[in-house]
């Protein structure tokens, strides 16, 4: 779908978060000069079109005890990416699975997936089981556990990319 300027402004507002008031769509609309019904209809359209991936409570896994979070990256041949990605994406503990560009020689990895767990041992056990289940033993990969979190907030799509 083609997003209008109004859609983009609305998207930016809901990505930052709904106001925690009884009628949040009315409040967002009032700030933008839109009726509540129009706000709801535009959000429904953007959700149906997949522009909004999900609308809901955005939890901070770390604060809830999911302190281990590994990004696992795989050096998999282009022709095999689809097959390996389908196997990984079907795992319930894998929350994201993306193809990204390689930058050889420093960065040979093209497939990224994210695994969350309560501790590192749990994440490692999950990963080992996945590797065996899908026959990925020969695939070079790296496990990048997360350390400190410096920023986590909703994406800001509008406005200039300034400091």
């Amino acid at each position: 779908m083609e997003l209008t300027i109004t859609d983009r402004a609305l998207l930016a507002a809901v990505a930052e978060g709904l106001p925690l008031v009884p009628a949040p769509y009315h409040a967002i609309g009032a700030a933008m000069g839109l009726s509540e019904a129009e706000v709801r209809a535009r959000l429904a359209n953007m959700a149906a079109a997949g522009v909004i991936k999900r609308l809901g409570v955005i939890v901070r896994h770390r604060a809830l005890g999911y302190t281990a979070n590994a990004m696992v990256v795989w050096d998999v041949a282009d022709r095999a990416i689809g097959r390996v990605a389908a196997a990984l994406a079907g795992e319930p503990t894998v929350t994201l699975c993306y193809r990204r560009p390689r930058h050889p020689p420093n960065w040979p990895y093209a497939l990224f997936c994210m695994i969350h767990g309560r501790d590192r041992a749990a994440v490692r056990a999950t990963l080992s089981a996945m590797i065996v289940r899908h026959g990925l033993e020969d695939l070079p990969h790296a496990v990048l556990f997360s350390g400190r979190c410096f920023v986590q907030r909703g994406a800001r799509y509008t406005g200039a990319a300034a400091c």
């Binding site: 983009r8 998207l11 978060g17 709904l18 997949g50 909004i52 991936k53």
Partner: peptide, 16 residues
């Protein structure tokens, strides 16, 4: 700090 917000996750590459 248990939640960052109640809001939208925007699909990458779909807006901006």
């Amino acid at each position: 700090g248990a939640i960052s917000r109640v809001g939208a996750v925007v699909a990458p590459g779909r807006a901006g």
